[in-house]
Design a protein around this nucleic acid. Structure first.
Lengths: 345, 345
DNA sequence: CTATGCTGGGCAAGCGTTTTCCGGCGACAG
DNA sequence: CTGTCGCCGGAAAACGCTTGCCCAGCATAG
């Protein structure tokens, strides 16, 4: 495994020369080409490659084959446990398939997302997985669709996560159904008057969850008035903030808060604790996602469990399957009741 | 922006033809080459590129230039907040520099790490940032060093995070000092008899933090007996597990637990809560890293704050700086005292 | 008016692979 | 013994881009 003395990495050329065969034979020996090569030669090549520490140049391969081995994953924020869990699943499975994972971070900015996808074209990725929560904006959606279609025309597979409305294969998360189930479970446990902490209303995921929650309440003749919905960022700090605004308004007529995701719930819990509100004694709280932390806060958080790593896996599976480009895989959550929503007297 | 009708993406060739100039002129117009090109031509080329929806093929550029625009980040586990925070910083800054970030996950397996680095060679990355906590294993270390040196010989910059002993630029985290400071702070608050929850002893980071903690105690004539050190995985579940083992042993003679990282601390807190141990009433606890969750658990966790995103930024800075390849930037933590370690009567 | 530079376009040679195509060779059938 | 065919090695043409080099055109100086 001694490298060539001078700076340059060994090329296939070097290997071929070292093994005393042609470039073609060397190439055919080193990757499972369709053509067979004599075992003697093959061994000589492998041995030479090993000795020189040869590793094929991926870029050269891409350009020669006309197809890269890159998977591009786009997320809103990799530090958010929701996305890092998905990423974890995606990267693991991608590796298994011999794909190199690249990652783009939109910082929850639709404009940035568009930029990222655009520059992605340059990579000629074989798979693009768009996991950033999408916004409701026809204009940007259309541009994004165009870019993604361009990538698809270049031979790349596009998979959306949790975004039903674009014409690509998608791993859909049943936000509506999960939130509905959660609402039912909460009502069953005796809660009657709710408030909600949510992300900006242009955020698809937030909308769907809120709508689902309302649907669940409606089944029991309950409703969630607009004035009890507090909008903020879709993050921990957003939850902290929205929780504060809820307190300012007053919580006399509220017995349970639904945060549209766990990080917001966790932020809100911190705020409530700081302000001396007893959770769950005075106010119960529930979230959505079941991030790892949900078990570890006090009280442990009632939520809707989403098999996040599995979402990543499903995305990859879709990407490698034969589809018409409009396949939809739905992943459903499951209500997990914990101490943050005890049975109510 | 209408693509060519047939499947193939437009190439520079197409743009040149469309603009009625040579390949060379087209190339020079589209990237800031050293050579100037007449404004008339330049405009024509840009316009043609726009019209065709041309985006340069990154692979082709890499191979033509002999240098890629890839940054490779290697972490143990992207779902761990420690690493995802670092990744967040790295990816953001990389993007700013026009680098595409690829990511590899070692799953805390040194063997896998080696594999990953090996296949990385194929990417000819311009920068490699190795953030996975390294192990103490001379054999593997040497192989890893060889691989990384090979990459460096190919013109890539290698930066280690939190790993002092390898001959590369490194962003060092002052684990020893931070843990020492923490110990001092805890003693000052009245704690006298400690236990520790730690990762496997072959894990550098765990060792250093434990050693630092002991050093701090020693300054007050205190010590941490081996039998009060509980080893487990460097994860939340590891903390949960180690906490349980500690309880089995008995905690009559312990008033404060030091977990070598926050996720372990959080896991342990959950275990303690489950077992009915009052935290911090009966037992105080402190961690290390100051992950986001540390503020949100109850009681809020005393810890050592590490500016994790900044660590990522520092790594990139090192990678782009002129160094001898042995530069060391040290990042220090700062003790943050919270409710998990109240002043002791 | 010629010598000298400088500017900037274009030709073509790479970069490290894969893959097509050609041709030599051995096997086997007639 | 000849004709066919399949097998497989090697030469060379791609793949999409950058860049060294040449050279035409023009401005400036002597």
């Amino acid at each position: 495994m001694n490298e060539t003395i001078h700076g340059m990495p060994p090329t296939l050329h070097d290997v071929a020369r070292e093994a005393g065969v042609s470039l073609a034979t060397a190439s055919r020996s080193l990757n499972g080409s369709t053509r067979k090569v004599n075992e003697t030669y093959r061994a000589r090549v492998l041995e030479a490659a090993e000795r020189l520490g040869y590793v094929a140049n991926l870029s050269a391969q891409s350009i020669a084959k006309g197809t890269s081995s890159t998977l591009a994953l786009i997320v809103s924020d990799i530090a958010d446990p929701y996305f890092s869990s998905i990423a974890s699943g995606v990267v693991r499975d991608a590796e298994q398939l011999g794909l190199v994972s690249t990652i783009g971070i939109t910082q929850r900015d639709a404009k940035r997302e568009l930029d990222i996808v655009r520059t992605l074209r340059g990579q000629r990725p074989r798979v693009v997985i768009v996991a950033g929560s999408r916004f409701v904006d026809a204009e940007l959606d259309e541009q994004l669709t165009r870019e993604l279609e361009a990538i698809r025309n270049l031979g790349g597979r596009v998979v959306m996560v949790s975004q039903r409305s674009l014409p690509f294969d998608t791993v859909q998360i049943d936000n509506h159904g999960g939130a509905r189930d959660l609402a039912l479970a909460l009502v069953e446990r005796g809660y009657r008057s709710f408030a909600a902490l949510t992300g900006v209303s242009s955020l698809m995921t937030a909308r769907d969850r809120l709508a689902g929650f309302r649907a669940g309440l409606a089944e029991h003749g309950l409703e969630l008035a607009e004035e009890r919905v507090f909008e903020s960022d879709f993050t921990r700090d957003g939850g902290y903030d929205a929780g504060g605004r809820m307190l300012e308004r007053g919580i006399d007529d509220i017995d349970c808060v639904f945060a549209v995701n766990d990080v917001m719930a966790v932020g809100a819990m911190s705020r409530l604790r700081e302000e001396g509100v007893d959770v769950p004694g005075r106010l119960a709280i529930a979230g959505f996602d079941d991030i790892a932390t949900a078990r570890d806060v006090t009280p442990a958080l009632t939520t809707v469990r989403l098999p996040l790593e599995q979402v990543g896996a499903a995305a990859i599976e879709l990407a490698t399957a034969e589809t018409d480009g409009h396949a939809i895989v739905t992943i459903s959550g499951e209500v997990v009741v914990r101490e943050s929503t005890p049975q109510r007297g």
